[in-house]
């Protein structure tokens, strides 16, 4: 126990406990839960959200927030949907879609890093704007008739494993290494902890913020394209419902909404927990509306819980004095 305490933080143990608990509940409540097919489809379902949540994690670590993540995803989905149905090839469509994502990221970063609008407010504005652009582009309709050549992204399997699942883990590994072992990663944490000290240490805070917001938008774009490919349609409001779950997963995964700490592994575990909850509910036949209730409750509980621990810590410290 002592050893465990040293190796892992309280939060990590609680998270692992919650994961195991839900896993056990799933295993006990329905025999299909542990079937390979179910597990693979579980991963297939969680990939899109997982990728978006990882992007959000980076932005949240910098002490920021991207409330436009969901509508960025929708905008990118609509963009590639349009390109594809207008007869453009898969590769050019993806490139244009990524280009739009970069523009979204740049717009957020300009508002946050250069004009210095509080990130929550700035991205609340762009959330609406991106949705508006996506609605205008798609004329308010869903775009169907996506060519089959695009289906590989969300429907192909490699060695029996869904492509998007491999993509999720590939990106996760990339981001973990980026955050842990590269200068940029270290700078992202420094920035989230103390913007001023980071600036004084020679970190180009503006560059790092641009990098983070663009990265987040690009991840949303990837998630959007996977979904377009999986469901063979593109809609402007595609990602809107994802935002809440993603923020909840990031926070549940141990990243503080105040920035400065946390990481990708926690976020992936957090998304897995939400995906399992949804999956179990589906298997058992509980209405999906419970998921919404559960997601909101978990977000509020985790945020309040973290805050209480923080206040406790602070109190203990000041008492010592």
């Amino acid at each position: 126990m002592e050893k465990l305490r040293k190796r892992f933080t309280l939060h990590e143990m609680v998270l692992a406990g919650a994961f195991l608990l839900i896993f056990l509940i799933g295993a006990c409540s329905n025999e299909n839960f542990l079937s390979i097919r179910n597990i693979l489809s579980l991963f297939q379902q969680m990939s899109e959200m997982g990728i978006m949540a990882m992007g959000l994690t980076i932005v949240i670590i910098t002490g920021g927030m991207d409330l436009s993540a969901g509508t960025t995803m929708g905008l990118c989905a609509v963009t590639s949907g349009l390109c594809l149905t207008k007869g453009l090839g898969v590769v050019p469509s993806l490139i244009i879609s990524l280009g739009v994502a970069v523009l979204c990221g740049v717009m957020n970063a300009v508002l946050v890093a250069i004009i210095r609008i509080p990130p929550m407010i700035a991205t609340l504005g762009t959330q609406m704007f991106f949705l508006g652009v996506a609605l205008v582009l798609s004329k308010g309709n869903s775009i169907s008739g996506i060519p089959e050549s695009f289906y590989f992204l969300g429907q192909a399997k490699i060695f029996g494993m869904p492509l998007q699942m491999l993509l999720l883990f590939g990106l996760a590994v990339f981001l973990i290494i980026m955050l842990k072992n590269t200068v940029t990663g270290q700078h992202i944490y420094a920035l989230g902890n103390n913007m001023k000290a980071a600036l004084f240490s020679g970190i180009r805070t503006t560059h790092v913020l641009f990098y983070s917001y663009i990265m987040c938008s690009v991840m949303c774009c990837i998630a959007g394209n996977i979904q377009v490919s999986r469901v063979a349609t593109a809609r402007a409001d595609m990602g809107s419902a994802f935002l809440m779950t993603c923020i909840s997963a990031v926070v549940l995964g141990g990243t503080s909404i105040n920035g400065g700490n946390g990481g990708i592994v926690g976020t992936v575990v957090g998304i897995m927990i939400f995906a399992m909850i949804g999956n179990i509910m589906n298997l058992v036949g509980i209405s999906s509306f419970w998921q919404q209730l559960a997601t909101g409750s978990i977000l509020v509980l985790v945020v309040v819980f973290n805050r209480m621990i923080e206040m406790q810590k602070y109190k203990v410290k000041s008492r010592k004095v």
Partner: peptide, 30 residues
């Protein structure tokens, strides 16, 4: 929740929005 814990209001209300909506959706089954 906002006053007692000084948590960013946008986060709290994002969460409670989903709770309030979830409750009525669950009860009416949509």
């Amino acid at each position: 929740l906002i006053a007692a814990f000084s948590i960013p209001p946008i986060i709290i209300t994002l969460g409670t929005a989903s709770i309030y909506r979830g409750i009525i959706l669950v009860y009416t089954n949509g």
